[in-house]
Amino acid sequence: MSTMRWRGTLIYTGTVAAIGAAGIARFVVTPDAAPATASGIGTSDGQSSSSSSGTSSGSGSSGSSSSGSSGSSATDTTGGGTTTSDSVTVVGSVASTRYGNVQVSVTFQGSTITDVQTLQAPDRERESQQISARSVPVLAQEVLDAQSAQVDTVSGATYTSEGYRESVQSAIDQRG
């Protein structure tokens, strides 16, 4: 049977119209976004601080102090650091990714990395928040295991992983 000419192109045109319609319906007609995003940022922060208290292995005091500094001075704390006895916490630089900023603080005990706190993680969309919530603890553990910023990319969190490495590396560089 001879194939109807242009039928494939017609179906393609119809599909593109459907894709466009789906986009308009999803992004313009039903913007359930605003409240979700606003509350999402709150939970994201809560998650990062709670995960930090969960993963902080050594001294509880350094964990609380670093999360306190992230809460107060927000993004521009690059280069800052706090010292408690012989443990030093260094705040890494802000790495911007397509989904939002990544910033960590790294706690050193001598030359050993004892803790990594997430001060900022991509939170631009709910999707990004989910990815951050899933990938950040994995990345923190990887840094503790590797004792360096050379850690594997977490599957599905390519951009977050890259930003995380960058921020950890800057903290290590500052420590010298």
């Binding site: 599909t15 593109v16 999803r26 913007p31 359930d32 976004a33 605003a34 631009r124 969309e125 999707e127």
Partner: peptide, 26 residues
């Protein structure tokens, strides 16, 4: 639809990427 939050479309880049994902899925 259910895997794409409406907030994705808050930026033109996010919206175009999401539609590109739909085209790829189809």
């Amino acid at each position: 639809w259910f895997g794409t939050p409406a907030a994705t479309g808050s930026t033109p880049g996010g919206a175009l990427s999401a539609l590109g994902e739909l085209a790829g899925l189809l």
